[in-house]
């Protein structure tokens, strides 16, 4: 019987082969990005689709960092993404807690409206948003991007946070209140530490969404010194040519903050923090 249950070697090989196929498929564009970034300009077209370049250089990175506005774009993006992530997570955590714990008039309606906002393609509202932002004189400001991104991310982030709060037993807060805490103390001392994974996940999600957003940044920002990184990438496209090497080098550098961010929050993403709270 156990022999029958044991996987045959062929099945194991097939499983790993499938995983490998998927990995190659998913990571190949990333590889190509890095490959072009380190290929000397002269070889980009002559070697074409050759998988491994015959020479490797860091010139593209040097040029991007020292001779373009890349660092300014990068800083702008960082500012916008961190700002959006912070504001969104704060608001979403508060809203998610309220949805999870309180009953109030209009709760269902509010949830429905928030869902509806998620159903429209963004393209539809670009014109009105542009109009609003220009009317209040916020074109070409990074704050306008934070405001717009926050507005778009709050519904999803709220649902995300709500599900994390729902996962924390109500008993814990009640026990804290019986132990003499106010609701706020219970929130701060008991619920908050247990919600860290949720906060981490929400921060990460919103940060990456804001980091890679192009459409609104393109519409609302036209001045070079307020450009975010995705918009700035387009400056590598000139009238007669595309500077592939530098563009890819900039792309590689743009991956760094996302990776750092996830390395930083991944320990909060570990599940099972609430195990042991209630019956095992």
């Amino acid at each position: 019987m156990p022999a029958a249950l044991r996987r045959s070697p062929a099945a194991t090989v097939a499983k790993y082969a499938a995983l490998l196929c998927y990995l190659v498929f998913a990571l190949f564009p990333l590889y190509w990005l890095i490959k072009i970034a380190v290929t000397p300009d002269a070889l980009v077209f002559t070697e074409g689709t050759q998988v491994i370049p015959s020479a490797v250089t860091l010139d593209n990175f040097r040029t991007v960092l020292l001779q373009t506005d890349f660092l300014s774009y990068f800083g702008n993006s960082l500012y916008v993404s961190l700002g959006t992530a912070a504001v969104t997570t704060l608001v979403a955590a508060a809203a998610g807690y309220a949805f999870s714990r309180f009953d109030f008039a209009g709760k269902k309606l509010l949830i429905a409206v928030m869902l509806i906002t998620q159903m429209f393609p963004l393209l539809m509202i670009i014109a009105p948003i542009y109009k609003i932002i220009s009317q209040v004189g916020m074109l070409n400001s990074l704050t306008s991007l934070i405001v717009v991104y926050t507005a778009f991310n709050i519904p999803f982030a709220t649902f995300l946070m709500q599900s994390f709060f729902d996962g924390i037993p109500k008993d814990l807060e009640e026990a804290a209140m019986m132990d003499g805490s106010t609701r706020f103390q219970a929130l701060y001392k008991v619920v908050f530490p247990l919600t860290l994974p949720g906060l981490g996940a929400t921060l990460g999600f919103v940060f990456t969404a804001a980091w890679s957003e192009l459409l609104f940044a393109l519409m609302l920002i036209s001045k070079n010194d307020a450009m975010t990184f995705p918009v700035g990438l387009l400056t590598f496209v000139s009238k007669f040519s595309v500077d592939w090497g530098q563009m890819m080098a900039a792309g590689v550098l743009a991956l760094v903050p996302s990776c750092l961010f996830f390395i930083f929050i991944q320990r909060y993403l570990v599940q099972g923090l609430t195990s042991g709270a209630v019956k095992g």
């Binding site: 037993p169 008993d171 814990l172 009640e174 026990a175 804290a176 209140m177 019986m178 132990d179 003499g180 805490s181 106010t182 103390q185 001392k189 008991v190 530490p193 247990l194 923090l273 609430t274 195990s275 042991g276 709270a277 209630v278 019956k279």
Partner: peptide, 30 residues
């Protein structure tokens, strides 16, 4: 919190991120 009544929950409701000592002393901490 002002009734001065203690309660033992069916689920125990222990604070999972606190050790036993802190769990027991939580009311005094507050």
């Amino acid at each position: 919190r002002d009734r001065d009544i203690a309660m033992v929950f069916q689920s125990y409701a222990l604070y999972p991120h606190m050790d036993v000592a802190r769990n027991m002393g939580f009311s005094m901490e507050i």
